[in-house]
Design a protein around this nucleic acid. Structure first.
Length: 201
DNA sequence: CGGCCGATCCACT
DNA sequence: GTGGATCGGCCGA
């Protein structure tokens, strides 16, 4: 195993907003049926557990779907949105504390040919990973993958994991805004929990 | 069991 | 800028 893979300790920390910011520039890999693809994370959102009105776990709500969020940090939480899109989240903090970071955008990194097949593109563009549904599609992450461990492969040898390859976003290039599509969350809708790595021209 | 709605995307105006 | 697609999850009865 290479030492670039993010260790469990990275995910177990309690500051989900800090983790969301630190995930910018990390490389998100998937390996399904032997096909490895990856992308650099460029946009994230933090969902801060039971106190966060925008979170699926607000108020300590537990359902068969959200139960995944209560697992230990370093677990994949994937759900279906609008009946069409799988949205990939990384569970953080310790068992019982349902923090998560939504991955909203990636820049295609490796396995380009494979990803082109997945989206039917002749030539992949940077913008093809811009959006949570599109990022998951490129990496073939599906809501059936919810619950996968990011720190070890599953029984079939499939895996989702992250690596720190030394790419660091300068503070001045990170745009912080309120989260997208959470207007139902009242005053929590305006929290500055979205981090975007603005790509310079 | 029925009805409403969503942490989105894309085509079309 | 806007509206339709599309269906699992959630809640109330």
């Amino acid at each position: 195993m290479n030492n670039l893979i993010l260790p469990r300790e990275f995910y177990l920390r309690d500051d989900v907003v800090l983790i969301a910011r630190q995930l910018l520039g990390k490389i998100l890999y998937t390996s399904f049926d032997g096909a490895v693809t990856s992308g650099m994370i460029t946009e994230t959102e933090a969902y801060a557990g039971i106190a966060d009105k925008a979170s699926h776990a607000y108020g300590g709500r537990r359902t068969s779907r959200t139960e995944i969020m209560y697992r230990q940090g370093g677990t994949a939480y994937v759900y279906l949105c609008y009946g069409v899109h799988s949205l990939f989240n990384i569970v953080t903090s310790k068992v019982g504390n349902p923090h998560a970071v939504l991955i909203r955008g990636i820049v295609p990194n490796s396995g380009i040919t494979e990803m082109q097949k997945r989206v039917g593109a002749v030539k992949l563009k940077v913008a093809d990973g811009n959006g949570p549904g599109k990022a998951a599609k490129l990496l073939r992450i599906h809501y059936s993958h919810s619950g996968m461990d990011l720190c070890s492969p599953d029984r079939q040898g499939n895996r989702i994991w992250l690596q720190d390859e030394g790419i660091l976003a300068a503070e001045s290039d990170i745009k912080i805004t309120k989260r997208i599509g959470v207007d139902y969350a009242g005053d929590d809708a305006t929290l500055p929990y979205r981090f975007v790595w603005v790509q310079k021209k």
